[in-house]
Design a protein around this nucleic acid. Sequence first.
DNA 1: ATGATTTGGATTGTATACAAAAAACAATAG
DNA 2: CTATTGTTTTTTGTATACAATCCAAATCAT
Lengths: 223, 223
Amino acid sequence: MKDLKLNENAFLPLRDVVFNTLREAILRGDLKPGERLMELTLASKLGVSRTPIREAIRMLEQEGLAVTMPRRGAQVAGMTEKDMEDVLQIREALDILAAQIACEKITEEQLVEVKAAAERFRKCTLTHDVKKLAEADVNFHDAIYNATDNPKLISLLSNLREQLYRYRVEYLKDESKYSELVEEHDRIVEGLENRNMELLTQSMKAHVEGQTVAMRHVIRDQD
Amino acid sequence: MKDLKLNENAFLPLRDVVFNTLREAILRGDLKPGERLMELTLASKLGVSRTPIREAIRMLEQEGLAVTMPRRGAQVAGMTEKDMEDVLQIREALDILAAQIACEKITEEQLVEVKAAAERFRKCTLTHDVKKLAEADVNFHDAIYNATDNPKLISLLSNLREQLYRYRVEYLKDESKYSELVEEHDRIVEGLENRNMELLTQSMKAHVEGQTVAMRHVIRDQD
DNA sequence: ATGATTTGGATTGTATACAAAAAACAATAG
DNA sequence: CTATTGTTTTTTGTATACAATCCAAATCAT
């Protein structure tokens, strides 16, 4: 386990601060799958008592980032290839759903935001800054999610993305796919702009399927 | 708040027992939307300390059954018509997804189970026992979910169903729709049996859309 | 009266103490 | 040397104590 340090924010209860800290540590890989989350250890590392640690663990558990066996404590949840496939399958369906809802409901303002995000993404493909690129991609999809006006769907999708996060950045390292991604984004924007549900559904489907294939590839290579 | 009593199970940690108890109380309406979940009150009602109560609340929170404002405690989450629509929209997409996956993966054994559940449902429509009927319907859909071999999808769908639960039983009280429901189930079974993805998708879509309309009706009537 | 302010009680947040279970270790018998 | 039992240590589960915050009623000034 790498050193952990509290992401301090004086206004949030400690359980939330601890939750965010652990969540990020898990996502960035500082806490590895299978690693035990021992209350006393974490408590002393983060300089708090066991109480907020325990509450944070209960929260991580429900997010799918930790698993606990009663009386044996919690561990960082592992992500097998199968798990990843399962998540991708769900995300594919919901990403398409989000696009379809957005197609009907998106406002001019929101469309502008989607376009801006697509443009930022395009620019980032030129700078070779993978971190920024990933962020731009997230923004693009979030802009579409937001247009659904369905908070439950939005939070579900962001939870799914979270679970995929560990492999996400990897697949964005393949620069040969950049132009393809930009084109896919453009087609999605076109679909939204013209309220062309058919085109939009097809292009979003192609986009997420492409990502699915790419990530599957990344996972295979790692093992 | 109606009287609460611990669903005692000596092997589970108290937090889980409390969680189940509160979850069921919320779903059956004993704890009403907006009702405060006060730690000390619940603790004394259930005869435990605040610690397991707090942990259970963190879990309910992540399930969407409770909402908490920092330093102000938790309340039972309300379900507006809008919330319900949002959940139904998601469930529709995922139910169809589940059917499509099942169509490819379902085993003979699992198919037998689906058929049996459909038959049990049909029988229940004759007895006018709404509770049993609801249970049979749950079994039918669970049998399909199980065939997806995707645990994350299964647990997501059962969480969504949970959120709809309060209105579920209501819509099953309209006996005039029973024959329609039975027919829809039959078509779904037919689709699975013949591995006819097109038919299956259509019939599942019709089925969940029908439920959506019925529930929307129920909600409107209540307000 | 009305509005600001103080103050007491209620409630949540955090730390800690103690109990119970599990894990690690050591000792002994085979 | 292995297996088994008993003992110690570690770790989780639960209760409780104390601190910080919030809320509402009472008080005070205008």
